[in-house]
Amino acid sequence: MGEPEKVQSLDDKQNWYWKKNIKLITGLLIIWFLVGLGGGVLFAAPLNEVPFFGVTLSFWIAQQGAILVFILLILSYAIRMDKLDREYFEKKEQ
């Protein structure tokens, strides 16, 4: 057995990338929780008093609105991560 190996940790740029990634995910998941479990369940009673076209706002969120928001969340994750990837590689030469 030689010297104990050391973990080669991320360099500054990789760390920057990972932190940005975590921040993005956290933000998106907060929206996920507030809209889905918040608007559809926890605040269902008050939002049920708010009319939304032919139904109430909470009914719409619970049955359709939340799903539309979920699509947007996954789409914006893919777009923002593509952008982050590009920024990362462009940063390399600086």
Binding site: W32, G36, F70, I74
Partner: peptide, 10 residues
Amino acid sequence: YLMGWTGGYV
């Protein structure tokens, strides 16, 4: 079911 199955996908 509607939110449970799609929200899990997020």
